[in-house]
Write a protein that binds this DNA or RNA. Sequence first.
DNA 1: CCAAAAGTCTACTAATATGATAGACTCGAT
DNA 2: ATCGAGTCTATCATATTAGTAGACTTTTGG
Lengths: 173, 173
Amino acid sequence: MRVNTRTCYALTLMADLSRQSPGRPAPLREVARRQRLSPRYLSQLTIPLRNASLLKSVWGNRGGYLLARPPARISLLEVIEAVSGPVGLTDCVLDPNYCRRSAYCECRRVWKQINDGIVKVLSGYTLADLARLGAGDAVQGTPGGPQEDSLTCRPQPRASRPSRPRSAPRGSA
Amino acid sequence: MRVNTRTCYALTLMADLSRQSPGRPAPLREVARRQRLSPRYLSQLTIPLRNASLLKSVWGNRGGYLLARPPARISLLEVIEAVSGPVGLTDCVLDPNYCRRSAYCECRRVWKQINDGIVKVLSGYTLADLARLGAGDAVQGTPGGPQEDSLTCRPQPRASRPSRPRSAPRGSA
DNA sequence: CCAAAAGTCTACTAATATGATAGACTCGAT
DNA sequence: ATCGAGTCTATCATATTAGTAGACTTTTGG
């Protein structure tokens, strides 16, 4: 599984909607403002969510979005799979033919086992659980303060955790 | 966590060494041939593994690699963290400051919980377990048959599972 | 002493994925 | 009819990934 911003934002969107009045459609603009996310980017996520029958959209003026079901009956797994496809820690877990070495690769069974665990956790979690975790409306501070210049998730433009640790100095081993 | 070829190959390398005679260094060339992996690429992985004291190298002619400890005393977590850094499903799990939304993001706790589960599984698994799973020497087929043209893991040059599922046709919803 | 075998280090590159923005459009209440 | 909302498609800069390559060091063995 690759947890990316799509995944996170979709969950955030759904959790936010879970906290709104059940009958009234919430405009995406408001959700985006509360969660401090780009409304445009968020709107890309609504399409697969609607296609997966997790979200209902109301057209026209005073329109917006509604959850298709009560929050307690939508699992995180459903949301994630709607926007990011099947949950697979690796590609070989989902498709044995993906990797040429699948037939004799020891790792694959480990990934499979871990993946099953992830799926189990995610299917047990619902939006209601998620909504309970969140602190209601997110944006409460910055009352007239300086606006953040971007609505992105990343802290700064070129933040990158070194995924390949540098080797230790030669003499240390 | 991003499971990539580095992770997989490092585990494969270590599992292969686990199956060799304990006292005798195994040349990387032979491991690569058995596992059908690029010896050059594999050799990049030995450096962090040696720095993490999981691998010992023997220089010169008749040299090669040895596990630093018995396979039953090396966990998969150690190997993975040596080559890929700390196991984190997301960046925000490892570093709260990575994401600006951390303070009020509901998802983070979910990722944290899943991540803890992954770490637990990986630290419980040892190379001995992995070696038992593998089918001894990997390369047994292709007796004089046509050589595969590449030693990569990917099936074909441009294999790509669509991570962003295309939206269904308009009329279907 | 020299050559070969083995490991070590650093750079590089093509392909892909990612995060986000933009423009043009459709629908429907008022 | 018009405004505010959702829908769809395209584009783009950057980062990551997988793998290759070249140059170097160390040791064995003759």
